[in-house]
Computed example of a mutant assay.
Amino acid sequence: MGVLQVKRIYLAPEETDGCRILVDKLWPRGISKEKAMLFYWAKEAAPSNELRKQFHADHDFDAFRTAYLKELDDNAAALDLLAVVKQHLANENVTLVFGSKDEAHNNAPVLAAWLQSKLD
């Protein structure tokens, strides 16, 4: 059984990453598809444009987390992502990759926590 991980896409891919999934709506600057080494791009499971813009404007992470979790619960693409993650975790690690400089305050850890709650 694999482990669900979160990592910046700008860090070099490692063998322990396993299945790499980009969880941002926008493609990260300066990263080629070859360098990203992605299995899947879950852009439809990323926060809505409205929520992303609101978070960048007010920087209220708690409000962002609450709103994003609600979006995830109502998002069919998030359930599709859950199925992909579950399938891969049976055999390897799954790494959610993101572009934000702030490793703690972005959508990836929120999404990882939501996925983990559905896997438990």
Rank of each mutant, 00 (worst) to 15 (best):
R52T: 06
A113V: 12
L115Q: 08
A46G: 00
E15I: 08
A112K: 13
E44C: 05
K101H: 11
K35R: 15
G30S: 06
L89Y: 06
K118Y: 04
Q116L: 12
F64Y: 04
A78N: 09
F64T: 02
N75I: 11
N91D: 15
S100R: 09
K43N: 08
D17P: 06
W41F: 07
S100N: 10
Q54G: 00
V85C: 01
A108R: 02
D17K: 02
H105A: 04
K53A: 09
E34P: 00
D73K: 13
E71Y: 10
L72V: 07
N75C: 12
F55M: 00
D58E: 13
N106Y: 07
D73Y: 09
D73V: 04
P28G: 03
T16R: 15
E103T: 15
D60V: 04
K101L: 09
N49G: 07
V6N: 05
A57C: 07
A104Q: 14
L119S: 10
N106A: 07
V94K: 02
A113G: 12
P13D: 01
A46S: 03
N91W: 11
Y40R: 05
D62C: 09
I31P: 03
Q87R: 15
Q5A: 10
L119G: 07
A76L: 13
Y10L: 01
N91Q: 14
E50N: 08
E92K: 04
T66N: 14
Y10K: 03
K70S: 14
R20D: 03
M1V: 08
K43D: 05
L111V: 09
D73M: 11
R8S: 04
E15V: 10
K118D: 09
S100H: 09
I31T: 04
A76N: 14
K70Q: 14
A77D: 13
G30L: 06
L81P: 00
E71H: 06
R8H: 04
R52I: 03
L81I: 09
H88Q: 14
A57G: 05
A76R: 14
Q54L: 08
S100M: 09
R20P: 00
N91T: 13
Q116E: 15
L11R: 15
P47R: 00
S32E: 07
G2S: 06
F64G: 03
L22D: 02
V110G: 04
M1R: 11
D60Y: 07
D120Q: 14
L4H: 02
E71G: 05
Q116G: 10
E50V: 05
V97P: 04
P109Y: 11
Q116C: 08
K7R: 12
K7N: 04
A113D: 15
K53E: 12
V84G: 02
L111I: 12
I21A: 00
E103N: 11
D58H: 11
H56N: 10
F39H: 14
D24Y: 03
A83N: 14
P47C: 05
A78G: 09
G99T: 05
F64N: 00
D17R: 03
S117H: 15
N107K: 08
N91A: 13
K70A: 15
E14R: 13
D24F: 01
K101N: 07
D62I: 11
N75A: 07
D74L: 13
S117G: 14
L51T: 05
